[in-house]
Design a binder for these strands. Structure first.
Length: 219
DNA sequence: TGATTGATGTACT
DNA sequence: GTACATCAATCAC
């Protein structure tokens, strides 16, 4: 398998609001000891700078959130609930202080058996192996060691153009009620309509957004 | 120095 | 539908 080249820095150098939908349909790849674990991104959420009460950047720049304030196209990986990892792509404009896109779900496309093994759920359907932010980190072998990694530099961890197309779903972000109005209700979550790999449904997003994802003629 | 809190997933009723 | 595992970062004194 020919490894697809990473998308350039310019792809990531925009507001998380813009990158989140653009990432739907692209490929997330991880080279682990020569084994490629990869999936098509089907669900993302945008987190903005300090003004966003749902964003980790709300407390300003700290040790944990440092990468969110750094150059776009890098990984921001953090521990969640003391036991899970979550993977973000740093994204913001020159004018924005910070921002990142949480990748919530991928459809596994390479190294599926290894992903199943890493999940420890040998009977799970491939479509559900990485249907959730913590699940995808476990399936693709992403952990704290990957925090700060440059996703534009190619292996071991990078993002490449994908071929998936389809309508986009848009809705409120998941589990951010603590942020209060208006942040908890803003439609900053994006998903590939009809994908079997979404982490959960899209309440309040009945009609697909009129947009296409990147790429060609394939599903 | 101590207390609270999650950008979740799994098991169970 | 509910309970709960588990801990670094952050917040309250």
């Amino acid at each position: 398998m020919e490894l697809p080249p990473p998308l350039p820095r310019a792809f990531h150098a925009r507001s998380a609001i813009d990158l989140a939908p653009a990432l739907i349909g692209t490929l997330l790849l991880h080279d682990v000891d020569g084994m490629i674990l990869a999936g098509t991104i089907v669900e993302t959420e945008a987190y903005l700078g300090p003004a966003d009460r749902a964003s980790h950047a709300r407390a300003g720049r700290t040790r944990r959130t440092g990468p969110m304030f750094g150059p776009p196209g890098h990984a921001y990986v953090y521990r969640l609930y003391g036991m899970h990892w979550a993977f973000n792509v740093v994204a913001h404009t020159e004018d924005e202080e910070a921002g990142a896109v949480l990748v919530r779900a991928v459809l596994p496309v390479a190294g599926i058996e290894e992903q199943r093994r890493r999940r420890g759920r040998p009977t799970d359907r491939a479509e559900r192996l990485a249907a959730g932010p913590a699940r995808l980190c476990q399936a693709l072998g992403i952990s704290g060691e990957d925090g700060g990694r440059d996703l534009v530099a190619g292996p071991p961890l990078w993002i490449a153009a994908g071929t998936a197309t389809g309508a986009l779903l848009q809705g409120p972000r998941v589990n951010v009620a603590y942020a209060g109005d208006p942040w908890a209700a803003l439609p900053l979550r994006f998903g590939l309509a009809g994908s079997p790999s979404l982490s959960r449904g899209f309440p309040g997003a009945a009609s697909p957004a009129s947009r296409r994802t990147t790429g060609g003629p394939d599903e």
